[in-house]
Design a protein around this nucleic acid. Structure first.
Length: 291
DNA sequence: CGGAGCTCCTGGGGGC
DNA sequence: TGCCCCCAGGAGCTCC
């Protein structure tokens, strides 16, 4: 389940392999993989063919590959980019052309240099690619509503804390709202709440600036640690352009640890239904607040 | 218009 | 052994 750290690992891997390469051909094997592309699969294939990939950028869980200008435009105009979201199971793999197709290969992009292909592989098809317009700063227009993520240099903490307090909802719902703060999913939300010793249902309007800063700092710390773990293991050519962070084996404190002792106090971690999925917490470290 | 719930999807795993 | 149901969940969409 790629969240910010996993997507950033993918971005770094891609940056190394697709930069400054001209696309030869694009083949969409499953139309659902480009359902967000306005013109459909054929349009995606034809418009991306012949373009040069220039850089790979990221905001929250989205990443995008910027493209060269096919026709020189006047200053101040935007360009185009391949916008990608990995969903739950999406992978962007860099693979030799002779490598056998993956079972869930959805999109294949080949390059004029005959080198490694870029493949979008996605079992559960929640992920998607699209060719989109960007603003003059190179940011995809469809991401206008996505807030900066906590590792973004433009992230403004006072703005976030004010917005958080204006919400009328529970703390974890707010953390998962990509229009408020981006990059956090179910796993890192639970881990951040555990580190900050806060309950997922705590009312946002009751959160003090210190508490808000605490949970934000926890979210940042846990994501940076996960990123470091993922980053340390992606030295081989193709293996780690795939969303594996290497973080999940031993480092998680509460996520998925139902019935196991809290790493801080030893009380058993509980799993509770939340938004048609799950929340994990330590009952002692993260007690439910009284209203 | 903000908040909450629904829906898309597939394979692994547990229960019987 | 095989079948069925639950589960994982990001985010766009709809409804109130």
């Amino acid at each position: 389940m790629p969240e910010l750290p996993e997507v950033e690992v993918v971005r770094r891997g891609l940056e190394r392999w697709v930069g400054d390469r001209r696309v030869a051909a694009v083949a969409v094997a499953h139309p659902r993989a480009v359902r967000r592309h306005a013109g459909g699969a054929g349009d995606f294939e034809s418009r991306l063919s012949g373009r040069v990939m220039t850089a790979v950028r990221r905001r929250g869980k989205y990443l995008w590959i910027t493209l060269d200008d096919p026709v020189p435009q006047s200053a101040g105009q935007g360009g185009e980019a391949v916008l990608a979201h990995l969903g739950m199971s999406g992978q962007l793999l860099v693979r030799p052309p002779e490598a056998p197709d993956e079972i869930h290969l959805r999109v294949r992009i080949t390059f004029l240099d005959g080198g490694p292909e870029l493949r979008f592989v996605d079992q559960r098809t929640f992920g998607a690619l699209a060719l989109v317009d960007t603003d003059p700063a190179g940011r995809p227009l469809p991401l206008a509503h996505i807030a900066p993520d906590p590792l973004d240099e433009t992230f403004d903490e006072p703005t976030f804390l004010r917005s958080l307090r204006r919400r009328r909802t529970g703390l974890k719902r707010a953390l998962l709202d990509q229009t408020l703060i981006s990059g956090i999913g179910n796993i890192y939300a639970d881990e951040a709440l555990w580190r900050a010793r806060m309950h997922y249902a705590k009312a946002t309007e009751a959160i003090t600036p210190a508490q808000g800063a605490s949970v934000l700092s926890a979210a940042r710390a846990v994501m940076v640690e996960a990123l470091d773990k993922g980053g340390t293991s992606f030295d081989s050519l193709y293996v780690n352009v795939n969303g594996q962070s290497g973080y999940f084996d031993r480092e998680l404190a509460v996520y998925g640890r139902t019935g196991l002792p809290c790493r801080r106090c030893g009380v058993l971690v509980v799993r509770e239904p939340f938004m048609n999925r799950s929340s994990f917490r330590c009952p002692r470290c993260q007690p439910r607040q009284r209203r």
